[in-house]
Amino acid sequence: MRPPHVLTQTTSRVLEPSDLDAALAILDRDPVANAFVTARVQIAGLDPWRLGGEMWGWYEHGMLTSLCYAGANLVPICATQRAVRAFADRARRAGRRCSSIVGPAGPTAQLWRLLEPGWGPAREVRTHQPLMVADRLPDDMAPDPYVRRVRKDEVERIMPACVAMFTEEVGISPMAGDGGLLYQARVAELVGSGRSFARFDADGKVVFKAEIGAATDRACQIQGVWVAPEYRGKGLAAPGMAAVLRYALTDVAPVASLYVNDFNTAARRTYLRVGFQEVGAFMSVLF
């Protein structure tokens, strides 16, 4: 294996597999905010084909200090202002290949300001999405005993709820484009790994569901929280989330996180009831 690149100038470049340890050290600075990218890198390394995108690195005086994941999402990671400018220059030259820009609110906002003249307009910009964490179960909220792991033979039963959640959240159907092949594969992957959870009614319909979408040994990220419309307002969300949180903290990682749209006041109240606390904010730019 070749030794890692040592640069003596301030510059950016595409990282290579030999840079893995240095990249992981950057990701480890904020295990909660970086859980999504860290989980991918721990599984795939830095090979672009396996990773599903490139990892860009920013060097200050020869030391790697910031990262940017450039795949289906463009994600600035521990990015300084100078790093963001360099990543924006690289992104402009490459042209937009991502479906969203997402990450900590400050660097993401700066990145979008630099890219908007060439990449805009966006379909939607969500400037403030509270990042919330929990490291213990709530004392006053019993987990819903009917929320359980989705079995591998139940992928077709959970899929309509996943499609409905995605469409409500993102504004477009995940079945567009490739007919939903990639999305169905992702749902099946989460079910197969035991990270998809749901409550079914007597007829086998999903009434509540959520997934643990990214997982490392230090933090995991809950996503895709959804209650069937006819069951909303009936008190299912908080006990359901408590059940998923129990699985997360018991089986996956010592800290569970999620991020939520600031305008979704009902969801934010639910997460606070379950014991989540705001620790920062994300921003998303959707194309």
Rank of each mutant, 00 (worst) to 15 (best):
A79F: 02
G224K: 08
P143G: 06
R149E: 12
G224H: 11
A185N: 12
A228H: 15
G171D: 01
G180S: 12
F166H: 13
A83N: 02
E169H: 14
G57A: 06
V84Y: 00
A91F: 04
V163R: 05
L272A: 15
V32Q: 10
A188R: 15
D144R: 02
D140Q: 15
D153H: 14
D140H: 15
R13M: 13
Y271M: 09
W49F: 13
C220D: 04
V84A: 04
R149D: 03
A79T: 00
D217K: 09
E124Y: 08
N264L: 07
R92L: 14
M175H: 05
S18L: 05
G103R: 02
H128C: 12
A83V: 06
R13V: 02
C98P: 00
H5W: 05
G45L: 06
G179D: 07
A79D: 02
E54K: 05
L131G: 05
W226C: 01
I43G: 05
R186D: 12
V102W: 10
D30Q: 13
A253E: 07
V125W: 12
T216V: 06
L258Y: 03
D21K: 11
H61S: 13
S66M: 00
P104C: 08
S12N: 11
P117N: 05
M63W: 10
W119L: 07
G118A: 13
A228L: 06
A23R: 05
A88S: 09
G71E: 06
Q221F: 14
A214G: 00
P121H: 03
L114Y: 01
A70H: 10
R186Q: 12
L111I: 00
R13S: 04
A44S: 15
A142W: 08
D21Y: 01
W119M: 08
P229I: 07
R85E: 15
E54C: 12
P254T: 10
T8K: 12
M132Y: 04
T11H: 05
L286I: 14
V274L: 09
C162A: 14
Q184E: 15
R246I: 04
